[in-house]
Computed example of a mutant assay.
Amino acid sequence: MQTKIHEPTQIVEVMLTHAEQADEAVKKQLKKLYAQYKGTKYTVAVFLSGNRDLYEDTRDLLLFNRRRAAERAVQARKAAGQ
C-alpha cells in the first residue's frame, strides 16, 4: 500500500495492488486512515490496481477518442456549411 498526501488539493492518495485489495491487514489500515482523516478537509482517494492489460485499454481509449474527435469535426463542418 502506497500512500501520498497531496497538500495543495488536500487529497490523500492510496494505491493498492491487486493482492493488497484482498488483504485483511490492509483493509484494517484503510479503516484507520479513513478514521484519521474523517472530519478534516482531506479526501482519501483509493486507487485499485486492475487485472486488465493497461497498454491495450489505454490504446483502445485513445483510438476511440481520436475517432470521436474526427466525427465531431465532420459534424461541425457540416453544420457550419448549412
Score class of each variant (00 low, 15 high):
M1Q: 12
Q2P: 04
T3C: 08
T3G: 04
T3F: 02
K4F: 11
K4C: 09
I5K: 11
I5D: 07
H6K: 06
H6M: 05
H6P: 04
E7C: 01
E7D: 10
E7P: 09
P8F: 01
P8R: 05
P8Y: 00
P8M: 04
P8C: 05
T9A: 08
T9L: 06
T9M: 06
Q10R: 15
Q10Y: 01
I11N: 02
I11Y: 00
V12G: 03
V12W: 01
V12F: 01
V12H: 02
V14M: 07
L16H: 07
L16W: 03
L16G: 03
H18G: 07
H18F: 09
Q21R: 09
A22G: 00
A22N: 10
A22Q: 11
D23V: 03
D23A: 02
D23R: 04
E24A: 10
A25D: 13
A25Y: 01
V26A: 02
V26W: 00
K27M: 05
K27R: 12
K28F: 00
K28T: 06
K28Q: 11
K28M: 05
Q29D: 12
Q29I: 02
Q29S: 06
Q29V: 01
Q29T: 07
K31R: 13
K32D: 13
K32Y: 00
K32L: 09
L33M: 10
L33T: 08
Y34Q: 14
Y34M: 12
A35F: 01
K38P: 04
K38W: 03
K38C: 02
K38Y: 04
G39R: 04
G39L: 05
T40V: 09
T40D: 05
T40L: 07
T40W: 03
K41M: 07
K41L: 06
K41Q: 09
Y42G: 04
Y42P: 07
T43N: 08
T43G: 00
T43I: 09
V44M: 03
V44L: 06
V46W: 00
L48H: 13
L48E: 12
S49N: 08
G50S: 09
G50I: 10
N51F: 03
N51A: 07
R52K: 13
D53K: 12
D53N: 15
E56G: 06
E56A: 15
E56H: 10
D57P: 01
D57M: 13
D57Q: 14
D57H: 11
D57C: 07
T58D: 10
R59S: 08
R59H: 11
R59P: 02
R59A: 12
D60S: 11
L61H: 12
L61G: 13
L62P: 02
L62V: 15
L62A: 14
L63W: 04
L63Q: 13
L63H: 09
L63D: 14
L63K: 14
F64P: 10
F64Q: 15
F64M: 15
N65E: 14
N65K: 13
N65S: 10
N65Y: 03
R67G: 03
R67C: 05
R67S: 11
R68N: 11
A69Q: 14
A69E: 13
A70T: 10
A70D: 15
E71C: 04
E71M: 11
E71Y: 03
R72G: 06
A73C: 07
A73P: 06
V74C: 07
V74D: 13
Q75A: 15
Q75G: 15
A76C: 06
A76H: 08
R77D: 13
K78V: 15
G81L: 15
G81P: 00
Q82K: 13
Q82N: 08
Q82I: 10
